[in-house]
Write a protein that binds this DNA or RNA. Structure first.
Lengths: 180, 180
DNA sequence: CAGCGGGTGCGGCATCTTGCCGCGCGGCAA
DNA sequence: TTGCCGCGCGGCAAGATGCCGCACCCGCTG
């Protein structure tokens, strides 16, 4: 349906984190995608014309990115929308897809992951490997990674958000530098 | 779209856990819903006629419940399908919805939650409260609860699946009897 | 420039929490 | 009955946490 399964021509980036937007915009531009940026719901609507794709964050200051998804879908029925968030949850993922998003990514995300989401998203792969229950460690680790990313790498802030002591988070992070 | 926003008339229950099926079927029947049961993909197709709704588990022995969702959608375009699983993941939730499921529930689930899913599912609530990052403890707790439920309350099995020592799981469980 | 607030690393310590072993019980099927 | 397996529990050593403090860096502001 909608578009072809290729990379976006012109993409609307909606995220209130300016630093993140700048970095992502630069990376995508370097990959040959035109990028328009908006930091809130209102700006998103205005900047959306001419875009065939959108990457929207769920957390936009006051308003929810889900509203943006709905608005964009209404205005541009053929636009391919991918949701990207640090505060992932199954509930919002379900709603995002019901509202017409074609993918839902969690935040520690590389620009290439984003492009892959647009490319590989449309058709419904009938065999997305269900999985065996994640080990508690891995679950915890991914969650921490996500929250940390959402807070721009700020350890103190992430620790507060995670309800754990800063020192503890610090130690946990030191243990796992990069590995997965 | 599809059906009306009411409780299912006749529901197809697809889950390979016979004990769970029996309990859920009994509970739903008591609530005035006719129930048909299937324990695998093949049986699901056969038993689906005449049903206006389906509750399908993602883990069906060998085959994935997502295939069942796709097959049911193809055979009965108007059927309302809700996915229920103990092995929840955002990835499968996204695929399930893309394949046409109207809701995605995680397993420690009450019969009333199921009915609520069918009733409240269709319209896309544009304001499903995003959330603030869950505390690590809560995240871990919900995950444990889910896995435990998936293993029918078998502590040893759940501990193995979770990659933690049985004794540890046991102690954690003793600490939080019921509270949330 | 000095002071202040906030973030980052790190050491130390008392106190949980884990991992692991073992024991005894109680079902259940061979 | 015997073996297999799950459950709950005690105990102990090793590792993880919570908490305090210190030093250092930055950016802002009087």
């Amino acid at each position: 349906m909608r578009e072809t399964e290729t990379a976006p021509r012109r993409l609307l980036l909606v995220d209130d984190d300016e630093a993140f937007c700048a970095a992502m915009a630069r990376a995508l531009t370097r990959r040959g995608v035109e990028v328009a940026v908006a930091h809130d719901a209102a700006a998103a609507g205005a900047a959306s014309d001419g875009c065939d794709a959108a990457l929207v964050d769920l957390r936009l200051g006051q308003d929810s990115g889900l509203h943006v998804v709905a608005a964009l879908r209404a205005r541009h029925p053929d636009m391919r929308i991918v949701v990207l968030t640090g505060y992932a949850s199954i509930a919002t993922a379900v709603e995002a897809i019901k509202l017409g998003a074609i993918q839902y990514l969690t935040k520690p995300t590389e620009p290439d992951d984003v492009l892959r989401a647009f490319a590989r998203a449309e058709p419904d792969p009938d065999v997305p490997p269900p999985e065996r229950p994640m080990s508690v460690r891995r679950l915890e680790w991914e969650h921490i990674e996500r929250v940390l990313a959402e807070h721009g790498g700020n350890i103190s802030a992430a620790a507060r958000a995670l309800g754990m002591h800063r020192r503890t988070l610090q130690r946990k992070l030191r243990k796992r530098p990069v590995k997965r």
